[in-house]
């Protein structure tokens, strides 16, 4: 009886360790959005006060809205201020100057181009 108990405890521990090592990636698309912001506002916050905005935004799941200023098969740029990298190819028929809302994870501020960058983005339909 005791042996059986030890066996099950070990099995459980083994499973926990296995799950910890092989845990899943965050799923940004289904994660709760922390805040919704316009492309102009988030860009301004980063360019004015990068220390505070880092704490506020980096690695967080947010929604950004704005007009498309550039579109490629895997990325969209909003108002030349926010760059959004998608994990999957963008199949929607989007054009420049269309207003969209994008959900993604903030990875930081690119001071070469003065743009905020997001990855693992998905399009929010309304």
């Amino acid at each position: 009886m005791r042996k059986l108990l030890i066996f099950f405890v070990l099995l459980l521990l083994g499973l926990l360790v296995y799950n910890y090592i092989n845990k899943d990636h965050r799923n940004i698309a289904t994660e709760q959005t922390v805040l919704v912001v316009s492309s102009a506002n988030i860009n301004e916050e980063f360019s004015k006060n990068s220390v505070d905005s880092k704490k506020r935004y980096i690695d967080k799941t947010i929604e950004v809205f704005g007009l498309i200023s550039e579109i490629n098969s895997y990325d969209i740029t909003l108002d030349n201020k926010v760059f959004c990298l998608f994990s999957l190819e963008i199949k929607d028929s989007l054009k420049e100057n269309i207003k969209v809302k994008v959900k993604g994870r903030v990875i930081g501020y690119d001071d070469l181009l003065e743009q905020v960058k997001l990855d693992q983005c998905t399009l929010i339909r309304e």
Partner: peptide, 26 residues
């Protein structure tokens, strides 16, 4: 992000470290 000045060959690249994706989440 990468930029090259084709006139003089000056080159700059910027990587946001959080953007590195691994197969294993841990």
């Amino acid at each position: 992000t990468a930029i090259i000045n084709s006139e003089n060959g000056e080159f700059a690249a910027l990587v946001l470290v959080k953007g590195f994706r691994f197969k294993n989440a841990l």
